[in-house]
Amino acid sequence: MRIALLADIHGNREAFDAALEAIRREGADRIALLGDLVGYGADPGYVVDRAAELVAHGAIALKGNHDEAAVDGRTGGMNDYAKAALEWTARQLDAAQSAFLAGLPLTHEEDDRLLVHADATNPGDWRYVTDAREAERSLNATDKRVTVCGHVHRPQVFNMLPGRAAIAFVPNTGTPIPLLSQRRWLAVLGAVGQPRDENPSAAYAVLDTAAKSICYRRAPYDIESAAKKIHAAGLPQILAARLFVGR
């Protein structure tokens, strides 16, 4: 089974559509959205509707910290841009869209996999996984062999043998990484809608359960349109500018 993994879409309609189109062409048996459907971008309503439609057809969707904050206003710990964007986002969502976000689960477990938006230790705390020690902490919080998460906006893959130190690795786009079975793995996805690894294209990954591998991929998209809409909505300029450089 090929599972397409997307995280941190952040209301970026153009990036989301481009990634889904690339996935459709490659072929995937299942789609999983790992949180932060909204926030930052100018099309939260569209993204939520499309996510709901995918879920109706069997996709998995999880809650991220921005999805939570857009519904209940809990923006503690966020920077001013994020807060401003979330206040704006909350006003764009209709009741059904808010209810969809409010109803999203924090985690999804299946076979030997755990999908979650952030660190698995306590998913609602929204902690980042950025280095080997944080990866070990998250891996130690679950029995599942493979964890996939987002939240950081920069792709990274960690692996460890039980009882040993984790190894960090920045994946190469297009090279499948074998998820060797005697190891435990934590794959941090790049962001679909607001990449921060200096590559502005929408990031996603495909997990192949038969081949036991994960492959990181990129989909170029119409950044200009996405940025123009952010300007037009009166959202902080930086949220548009950073899309062009992927930072």
Binding site: V157, A166, F169, N172, I177
Partner: peptide, 11 residues
């Protein structure tokens, strides 16, 4: 393999 994790690096 320059595009795969180096399992020996940290070990």
């Amino acid at each position: 393999h320059l595009h795969l994790p180096d399992l020996l690096a940290e070990e």
